[in-house]
Amino acid sequence: MAVDDQVVLGAGAGAVADLRDSKIRPRVVPVPYGSRPSICPVRAWHAWKETVKLDDPDGHAWRRLHSRWHTVMKGGLQPESIGDVITRAGERAGIEIRFTGHSPRRGLATSSRLKGHDQVVIAKQGGRAPHSKVLAGYLEVVDQWEDDALLGVL
């Protein structure tokens, strides 16, 4: 994954993520600044980029660490490694359910729907087909109370 750190002008300015190596398909995704600095992906990206001195716009954004020296290496993380990092982070945080590499995609879809975003917009941001059955399954759980056929009838 390479990330272009150009600031995007417009509502909620942030960064543009150029996801060239993707499990789903390559895509360009706008990433707005977070409402809280402690969880802002744009601020975290800039801090990471500065810390590891990333200067190649075509290089990998998330890099491997040498297992013995813990120095940043040239190559990018493997897809399995990213899932392992997410699982270990959830364990260290004391979260009782097991997080996997798929958890952020599901969490993004669920949280976006709770904020009222349309399924097509959610699918595009998450790299899914506009009418993905998997995405529809996630959103069904979110929508079961707002889109209930019994609302206003009982």
Rank of each mutant, 00 (worst) to 15 (best):
L108H: 13
R106G: 14
V3L: 14
V31A: 08
A2D: 12
D5T: 15
G75I: 00
R25Y: 08
R88E: 07
S132Y: 06
R43P: 11
G90N: 01
S132T: 02
R25D: 11
R92L: 11
L65H: 09
G83E: 05
A89F: 02
V141G: 01
T110M: 06
L151W: 01
G14V: 03
E140I: 03
S38P: 00
A61L: 12
T100D: 03
Y33T: 13
F99G: 08
S35W: 10
D4V: 08
K74L: 12
G34T: 01
E140F: 03
G127C: 03
E91T: 11
W69E: 11
V31L: 14
V153A: 12
D5A: 14
R113A: 02
A11R: 07
T87P: 00
R106L: 00
D148Y: 08
K53Y: 04
A2Y: 15
Q125R: 09
G10N: 06
R106F: 03
P32S: 05
M73F: 04
G127D: 00
R68W: 05
E146Q: 13
Q125T: 02
G75A: 14
V3N: 04
L154G: 09
R63N: 07
H60A: 14
H131Q: 09
V42A: 07
G59Q: 05
A2V: 13
R43A: 15
L154I: 06
S22Y: 01
V153Q: 15
P26L: 09
T51A: 15
S35F: 05
I82Q: 04
M1D: 05
G152H: 06
S38R: 11
V7A: 11
I97K: 12
T87H: 06
V31P: 09
W45S: 02
G34C: 03
A61H: 11
I86D: 00
D84T: 12
R68M: 01
D148C: 05
L150A: 07
P41N: 05
T110S: 06
V7I: 15
D18F: 08
V7E: 15
A15C: 15
E80A: 10
S81F: 06
Q6C: 08
P37G: 05
E50L: 12
D18H: 13
R105Q: 03
G126S: 07
W145A: 11
E140G: 12
D147I: 00
G152S: 05
E50I: 10
D147L: 13
D5E: 13
Q144L: 02
P57S: 06
V141E: 09
H60M: 04
R20Y: 12
Q125P: 00
E140Y: 04
S38N: 11
G137N: 05
Q6M: 04
D147A: 12
S103D: 02
D118Y: 08
A44S: 15
V72L: 11
K124Y: 11
K23R: 11
P57L: 03
V72N: 05
P57Q: 01
R92F: 06
A136M: 01
A89T: 07
A2C: 15
I97L: 13
S132C: 09
T51H: 13
A44Q: 13
T100N: 02
L139Q: 08
V31N: 05
G90K: 04
V16M: 13
P41K: 10
R113Y: 01
A44T: 14
L108N: 04
